[in-house]
């Protein structure tokens, strides 16, 4: 449905987005994931038409929209700051776009009623955004995006201004809404948990380029690059050895056993459900080689305590270069 073909964006000598290409299918939830400054927000702005790509093309339903103004693209967008109009009532905020697009009054009313029910804003329609909590503002922004019935909805870190608990709730809610309405969504985030739990497919970006495009499970189980391996999963994958012998093993796949590789405990970090053990696997006299081990339950090992660790060879990851 949406086809992004080799778009780039440069500011002077700095290439922020470098020949980005990916597609979004009808009804698909695609996450643009990457560390801050990787160019994911700029990419989204180019799709929205708020920035012009220096090269490449964007196609929506087979139509080239690269040169169209933001309004002509008829996309919906949820901003990180919510971008609610502070002087307008919630109701006026939601139907702002419908009024601008000259949708009939009856149709406006009908759509407003249905979307208000969907996101649960019934009691707040006459309030101004300043009187709402962060979560409620988020819902208004969401309602404004849904009511447009756009082909594609863009979301730019919509949950990053919410507290952790609310963020988890809204995550589930947005995903449920998206599936129920069959919306096509591009969702920009730097939070791998959001991407992994919500998206059908993830476009992982680093330094303006695509690292890997895959479904969440494949991104976790089959990372193609060391960056991907270390970006997805928490704590990040351990990389042991160097050159051709370099291999990756996830902390959750390492067992503390009675045989295997010797390791000296450096520190322990208790998380409740599990404990992250930091251990040194370097031979005596060599430099430290630190690995993290996810140990289920509570374990407080003494520093310098000697452990033996092992893992299934099936869980090892190898990287081509």
């Amino acid at each position: 449905m949406l086809k992004v073909e080799g778009i780039s964006r440069r500011y002077g000598d700095l290439t922020v987005v470098d020949k980005l290409s990916f597609t979004v299918n009808e009804g698909e939830f695609v996450a643009l994931l990457g560390p801050s400054g990787c160019g994911k927000s700029t990419s989204l702005k180019m799709i929205a038409g708020l920035e012009m790509p220096d090269e490449g093309a964007i196609e929506l339903d087979g139509r080239d929209i690269t040169q169209l103004s933001p309004g002509e693209r008829k996309l919906a967008m949820v901003f990180q700051s919510y971008a609610l109009f502070p002087h307008l009532k919630v109701e006026e905020n939601i139907i702002f776009g419908l009024q601008a697009r000259k949708v009939s009054k009856d149709e406006q009313k009908r759509r407003l009623d249905s979307v208000v029910e969907l996101v649960g804003l019934g009691d707040h329609l006459q309030k101004k955004p300043g009187q709402l909590s962060g979560g409620q503002c988020q819902r208004v922004a969401l309602a404004r995006a849904i009511v447009a019935q756009a082909k594609l909805c863009l979301m730019d870190e919509p949950l990053s201004n919410l507290d952790a608990k609310l963020r988890n709730e809204m995550r589930t809610e947005i995903r449920a809404l998206q599936q129920r309405l069959g919306m096509s969504v591009i969702y920009v985030t730097h939070d791998q948990v959001e991407a992994m739990s919500m998206a059908d497919r993830i476009v992982l970006m680093n330094d303006g380029k695509i690292e890997q495009i895959d479904v969440p499970k494949a991104l976790y189980n089959n990372p193609q690059t060391i960056f991907t391996a270390q970006f997805i999963g928490s704590p990040p994958m351990n990389i042991i050895g160097s050159g051709k012998n370099r291999l990756g093993i996830r902390p959750e796949h390492i067992e503390i056993s009675d045989k295997g590789m010797p390791a000296n405990v450096v520190s322990c970090d208790y998380h409740g459900a599990d404990t992250i053990v930091l251990a040194d696997v370097g031979a005596a006299g060599e430099d430290q080689k630190l690995v993290k081990i996810r140990y289920p339950g509570h374990a407080m090992f003494e520093a310098q305590q000697r452990l033996l660790i092992r893992w299934d060879s099936g869980n090892e990851h190898r990287f081509p270069n």
Binding site: G49, G71, L75, M77, F96, G97, A100
Partner: peptide
């Protein structure tokens, strides 16, 4: 962001001024 949002919603320059900029 406010102006970006209004542009995306398809509001014309005059409408953005009348409905957003001037009241604010």
């Amino acid at each position: 962001d406010l102006f970006d949002a209004a542009k995306l919603e398809g509001a014309s320059t005059w409408r953005i001024f009348r409905k957003i900029t001037f009241p604010l």
